[in-house]
């Protein structure tokens, strides 16, 4: 429990840092940064190993937790008629199994919201809209800036959106560039070649899920229950906070790391971790709901 718990704490830090890109960088740059990060996370082989380690840790932590809880419940076959437990320990220390189960439910929901969609449904390729100056005559005279949509590909190139064909017939959508002049850039034969396969617009998916579609994200229907989603996510982060409030320092105790010199540090860091990490996680859907 201790080892998997601490590993999952590390995972939380990584996951948080990645997700904070959703709100840390504004505009098109933020969208690009996050989508590039998402592409890296879904394709890098080292990340793949880490992700399997995380799945195993979650499963082991959950199954071991259930087995221990069952054993512990059996250890007191006849219950007390009158017990006064709030006298000596905080409620969250006594409720780790309940808090953990709620977190497991949240993980399933969370994965169905994003992980599943990212893997198994067709999400459009990221389109980034930007004003570029085109020497075009304005009806009012002079040069006018026009809004042009383009795809930003994993190869770091920009391809005008209307020159790309997206084939949704396969499970994994495939993207082709129709335009002859891109042949050289992509060093591929024929007039149609893949650009950034599996490169999906997770940023727009997240914004459509939590936001109210103020920005009209790329072809993804806005979530009509965005407020409910935000509330569920914020409550889940509170549950996570209380789970960590006990779990963080408890893991050290289980591993035998208890020393007068460092106990205070572990306690303080544990409490700070339990407050800061879930709070930052919870801020993300709130900010998206309010701004997107």
């Amino acid at each position: 429990m201790a080892l998997t718990g601490l590993f999952l704490c590390l995972f939380l830090v990584g996951h948080l840092l990645g997700n904070l890109q959703l709100i840390a960088i504004p505009g098109v740059e933020g969208k690009r940064a996050f989508n590039e990060y998402a592409h890296f996370m879904t394709t890098n082989p080292l990340v793949k190993i880490l992700s399997y380690l995380t799945y195993i840790s979650v499963l082991f932590h959950a199954i071991d937790g259930v087995l221990i809880t069952i054993h512990n419940k059996k250890s007191r076959p006849v219950k007390y008629v009158y017990k006064n437990p709030h006298n000596n320990i905080p409620w969250y220390s006594r409720s780790m199994a309940v808090l953990g189960s709620l977190i497991l439910i949240f993980i399933v929901l969370h994965m169905s919201h994003f992980w599943w969609k990212m893997k198994h449904s067709s999400i459009p390729m990221p389109v980034h809209k930007e004003f570029i100056a085109k020497p075009q005559m304005s009806p009012y005279g002079g040069i006018q800036d026009t809004l042009v949509s383009y795809y930003y590909t994993t190869k770091g190139d920009y391809v005008p959106a209307d020159e790309v064909k997206v084939d949704y017939s396969n499970k994994k959508p495939e993207f082709y560039v129709n335009y002859q002049k891109y042949d050289e850039n992509y060093k591929a034969s024929g007039t149609e070649m893949k650009i950034g396969e599996g490169y999906k617009d997770l940023h727009s998916l997240v914004c459509a899920f939590f936001g109210q579609d103020k920005m009209k994200e790329a072809g993804i229907a806005a979530n009509s229950n965005a407020l409910v989603a935000v509330i569920i996510y914020v409550l889940s982060m509170m549950v996570l906070g209380f789970h960590l409030m006990h779990g963080f320092s408890s893991a050290f105790q289980s591993l035998g790391i208890n020393h007068r010199k460092y106990n205070k540090l572990i306690k303080v860091v544990g409490k700070a971790f339990a407050i800061i990490v879930p709070t930052l996680f919870a801020i993300i859907p709130i900010v998206i709901y309010l701004t997107r």
Partner: peptide, 30 residues
Amino acid sequence: GFGNCSNTGACEVECPKGISLENIARLNRE
């Protein structure tokens, strides 16, 4: 047939002799 420790610390509070949780960590280490 005793249960497993989940580090709630209730024992330390109720122990008439004030035995510290430090000992449980030492037991875990040992």
